[in-house]
């Protein structure tokens, strides 16, 4: 089956800085793929490149169609099938527009005549009172605004929805409203979703597959349960060990604590995680290969395509296949 979204060798450069390095992933039709990583890991830049907001090299395919070229008509048409919901609904909705105008902006040219009815339908779809059409975004709560943004994205009848930290600026009690809504939309409309979040617990709840990013590249990807249970990359394990959980008291333990607090990735050849790696050369001098060889090239042979010299190698069956089903 053709993936809903297929990204290969995606690279984004800003001047001398490479924000995203050769990222590849497939988003299976009807599934949700999570992108996780710390700030600066390139996950949001990847999302922006996919929807055409950041210049990139590499290929992005939406279903059967190529969406890589920045200007061609076909690529633009293909990109319209990918819509994005931003982190901060306060700035993603024009303060001068009414809710109705915001949503209507997403409607394709052909549906303008029936605008009023479509807007009402969309608002109902995202569980908002259609009576809100005349309100301005400033009058709504954060959760309501985020739902307006989702309705605007849905108005364009997307096949893929890119959700970039959509709950990061919401309060806990309201976050659940948006998460539940996205899950319902996915089930009802068969949407495929690229779900970007720094919160692994949210990613686990929302996603079928997950790709972990570090310093601009995907260091591990696979089915979400598989990754959580058998993480190959030490960075993934460090992330998992840092998820705060009610009543667990794990954060103060020593499990998978990183070797240093260095904020920038390691320079030069070798693995760029090595300075912080809890099991790398910083703690285990025997692992000299990490300082000399880039673990990237061997990744396809390893489980979860892990970018780590010491990850298990793949044996026979494709570890990625059919691993991430919604329980």
């Amino acid at each position: 089956m053709t993936p809903a979204l297929s990204v290969s060798d995606l690279t984004v450069r800003y001047g001398s800085v490479t924000a995203v390095r050769s990222v590849s992933f497939d988003l299976r039709a009807g599934s949700v793929l999570g992108l996780v990583g710390e700030s600066g890991s390139g996950k949001s830049t990847t999302a922006r490149a996919v929807v055409g907001l950041a210049p990139f090299t590499g290929t992005v395919r939406v279903g059967e169609r190529d969406a890589s070229s920045p200007r061609s008509r076909d690529a633009r048409e293909a990109r319209r099938r990918v819509q994005m919901v931003f982190q901060d609904s306060r700035s993603s909705l024009d303060p001068r527009f009414t809710v109705g105008q915001c949503v209507a902006e997403g409607l394709p040219a052909g549906e303008r005549r029936d605008q009023g009815r479509r807007v009402r339908e969309l608002l109902e779809l995202v569980s908002l009172d259609p009576a809100l059409v005349r309100n301005r975004p400033g009058q709504l709560s954060g959760g309501q605004r985020q739902r307006v943004a989702i309705a605007r994205a849905l108005a364009a009848r997307p096949e893929v929805l890119v959700a970039d930290e959509v709950t990061a600026s919401l309060d806990v009690s309201v976050q659940a409203v948006v998460l539940n809504l996205l899950r319902r939309l996915r089930a009802e409309l068969g949407l495929s979703m690229l779900f970007i979040s720094h919160n692994l617990a949210v990613v686990r709840y929302m996603c079928d597959d997950v790709a972990v990013m570090f310093n601009g590249r995907v260091v591990e990807q696979g089915g979400v349960d598989d990754i959580l249970a058998r993480a190959q990359h030490p960075y993934t394990r460090a992330l998992l060990a840092a998820v705060p959980e009610v009543g667990q008291r794990r954060l103060l333990s020593d499990a998978a604590i990183e070797a240093s607090t260095a904020a920038s990735p390691a320079p030069g050849p070798g693995c760029d995680y090595r300075l912080r790696c809890p099991v790398g050369p910083a703690v285990d001098p025997g692992r000299a290969i990490c300082t000399t060889d880039d673990p990237g090239p061997g990744a396809p042979e390893r489980v979860h395509a892990a970018v780590c010299h010491f990850a298990s190698t793949r044996q026979g069956t494709d570890a990625l296949a059919g691993s991430g089903e919604l329980r």
Binding site: Y14, G15, S41, G42, K43, S44, T45, A168, H198, S264
Partner: peptide
């Protein structure tokens, strides 16, 4: 929730995160 991700390049002219430890 954390605002950590806002540190990622977001504008059309993102100033790439400065090497934090120069």
């Amino acid at each position: 929730m954390t605002t950590a991700t806002t540190l990622e390049p977001a504008g059309p002219l993102p100033s790439p995160a400065l090497p934090a430890e120069p």
